[in-house]
Design a protein around this nucleic acid. Sequence first.
DNA 1: TTTTAGATTGACTAATCACTCCACAAAGGT
DNA 2: ACCTTTGTGGAGTGATTAGTCAATCTAAAA
Lengths: 194, 194
Amino acid sequence: MISQSKIQDKRKEIWDAALKLFVEYGFHGTPTSKIAAEAGVANGTLFHYYKTKEDLVIVLYNDIKNELNSYITSKVSCNESLETKVKIMFINSLYWALDNREKFYYIHQFHFSPHFAKISPETIHQQSTCHIRLIEEGIKAELLKPLPIEFLLTIVSSHVFGVYQYLTSEDFSESQQKKVINDAFGMLWDMIAP
Amino acid sequence: MISQSKIQDKRKEIWDAALKLFVEYGFHGTPTSKIAAEAGVANGTLFHYYKTKEDLVIVLYNDIKNELNSYITSKVSCNESLETKVKIMFINSLYWALDNREKFYYIHQFHFSPHFAKISPETIHQQSTCHIRLIEEGIKAELLKPLPIEFLLTIVSSHVFGVYQYLTSEDFSESQQKKVINDAFGMLWDMIAP
DNA sequence: TTTTAGATTGACTAATCACTCCACAAAGGT
DNA sequence: ACCTTTGTGGAGTGATTAGTCAATCTAAAA
């Protein structure tokens, strides 16, 4: 067991190093040699764990997306009202983003890169299943405006990102952060509730 | 006069080629040689007009930002109500984005690249002066929620981008587009009005 | 016509980078 | 003890690239 995780140590070291450097210098700005150096492994070792640089880029994206998704779904329980569920998901998305700035930034950096074209539409759709289900439910219960699901999803996602951008543009105290997030949810609800 | 513009022809050819290729293949994915080839000029000519590749990347960004800004400001006249002004700016931002998809995409691609760090904060601030003034005015007149200007600005910008994303994710007819944009403005107004 | 200044070219260079290769080490099963 | 599998290292390679430079062209001024 210990050896099992120790074997994967270097894989994780490379993963972490790549995230840090990609976010700081961009995909093109970080050579694989620098990633290996930052991870404390040899050049060749990187290619033992990741077939190509692009493979690493994509694995990073999928891992982060999955981590975010499972974090968010872990926070909502079924016996809440729909508004509460949406609120919990919204707030927790932001807290996760604030606690994992590199990872959250990476998602968007990836989104605006040619690598994103390599992600299949099914994967993309599957990665937002839980959000889609909630929106469907909300529309049926007439708690959300009767608009196309994809439309609402896009609007909510970009709102989350907007709030994140604002929260990271300046230094806020915890209580200021909390107020901004609450205001932002109020605005979101005003926007999507009928 | 004719020669004047003819001299700048190649500069513009390079500009256009760079935009097209950067959007398609990313900054790293497009070598300067390809840009020169696409523009129909020699390798060296590119560096006659733009000192470095990065210079070209940044000039492209600033030019596009200025174009977008002057387009939007050209559409609002002073003797409108504030809500109308906001609506006109919102709608025209989206129409411009839809008519200039490469340029609009480029702005965001640039935003999520390390090149963005090279833009001075003053320049960034100056590039959104007209939006800031409108929001200030709106808060004073109690037509907008009394929130920090930067917050409202960020929220509105990301809403615009969200709507743009939705509109370009599928093929919509003109009337469908118009409906989406109108709905989106209604939602925006619900969100930012007190 | 001659001069001059800028525009244009494309071969060239120095550097960089993704990735390979092969030798060796560690671990585990038999 | 022996073999097989898997991990690790790092020098090496071939391809690519941003940017240079000296030569040539163009056109208008003198």
